[in-house]
Design a protein around this nucleic acid. Structure first.
Lengths: 214, 214
DNA sequence: GCGCAAAGTTGCACGTCGTGCATGAACGAG
DNA sequence: CTCGTTCATGCACGACGTGCAACTTTGCGC
């Protein structure tokens, strides 16, 4: 999973000609991830073995470890893809908006995007597993890094190759992710699985973030 | 280390009488944790087995798992104790200060407290281990919860038994921990292991946190 | 002191985890 | 077609983590 996949085969720059091989690889990856989530929801994360997951995805146990280094990693995999769409939403916000406002709207749109299906329910259940918590947080941290870069770009910062950003973008990213995490936590703890309630919670969070100084 | 309590065997309530038994237990716990840290620094976290740790602490391998459920948990154990002192420092801040100011000073004092010895160096090295990252974040999350409660108390909130707090304390705690994490990250990434530079970074962080709205 | 119950330690067994290595098949390019 | 690369797979092996059943230590009442 390195930065730049060459994608040499016959393609100019679009990088869209992936070939059957690479596509199959991606299919296997998502198949494993989805099987991991499904089985974990069904039997509880603790009671699912890697062998069951790889069987469900119709690959060998050894192959599983060629894609993920642990069961938990496979379960959390979905978050990475979701993170990408958040970044896209942020980039699409008008340049006139303040960073915090752009972040607020991007997050809210992001919630709308994925709230339709049952992924939210999946998140709610998985979040309760103590074994999963560390990896969940690690996934958050990874998204936080990407978000920091996106914010730095929005602020007109130049990004060095190592991906390090200034203090302000890093802090904004960290605070935003922390806020989202808090809002999610409070939403899942409450009984209501109403999406509007989550939106309201997120709005509160961003209101508070903007008023820390006072 | 921080066995600061006089352990008077007949002082107050029944819960405070420690006895030889419980003390021995605590000694074993810290012995395991310190051995884990020391060996990890020496050979790298990946190359240390639980058996080596338990041998170094002079207990059986099975006993190790009676205290910690994994090697990483033992390594991160020290953070929990450190978290306690931060809470104490926060409670000692004068009531007149704003929450954010109190947090700033508590964190700065906390850094001074532990910066003398080589624990900071230990943190710097351990933070680079990818296996350890998730557990490190989980430890941060645990401290964040406690900090949220302390902040809620400072704000005069009543805390229900389940430890849940209002949005503002939760958010303040999350943002503070995120800020500390960012400052630490940038400090360890930079070459200088000067403590004053860490203090400066933390001050910047709190300045930024207070200015999110603008 | 004595003995007993609770708590702690240890060894053992067992299933799972995660990785290195070798082999063979599928693929893509020339 | 042929060759080199990439990937899937089986196998072996050490480490991990836990349930269970001893055995030992500690605390406490008698």
């Amino acid at each position: 999973m390195s930065t730049a996949t060459p994608t040499r085969p016959g393609s100019r720059e679009t990088g869209r000609v992936v070939g059957r091989r690479e596509r199959k690889k991606q299919e296997t990856r998502t198949a494993l991830s989805e099987a991991a989530v499904r089985l974990s929801l069904e039997h509880g994360v603790e009671n699912v073995t890697v062998e069951q997951i790889s069987d469900a995805a119709d690959v060998s146990l050894r192959t599983f470890f060629n894609y993920f280094s642990s069961k938990e990693e496979a379960v959390v995999e979905g978050d990475a893809a979701r993170g990408e769409t958040l970044l896209d939403l942020l980039r699409d916000r008008p340049a006139g908006e303040s960073v915090l406002t752009a972040l607020r709207h991007a997050v809210l749109e992001h919630v709308d995007d994925m709230a339709g299906d049952d992924r939210m329910d999946a998140l709610r259940l998985l979040r309760r597993s103590p074994t999963l918590l560390p990896h969940q947080l690690a996934a958050y941290a990874a998204r936080e890094r990407e978000l920091g870069v996106a914010i730095a770009e929005r602020l007109g910062e130049s990004i060095p190759d190592d991906g390090s950003v200034g203090l302000r973008p890093a802090l904004l990213a960290a605070a935003t992710m922390a806020g989202v995490r808090v809002a999610m936590q409070r939403w899942t703890d409450g009984g209501s699985r109403d999406r509007d309630r989550l939106r309201a919670g997120l709005n509160e969070v961003f209101d508070e973030l903007g008023a820390f100084g006072s």
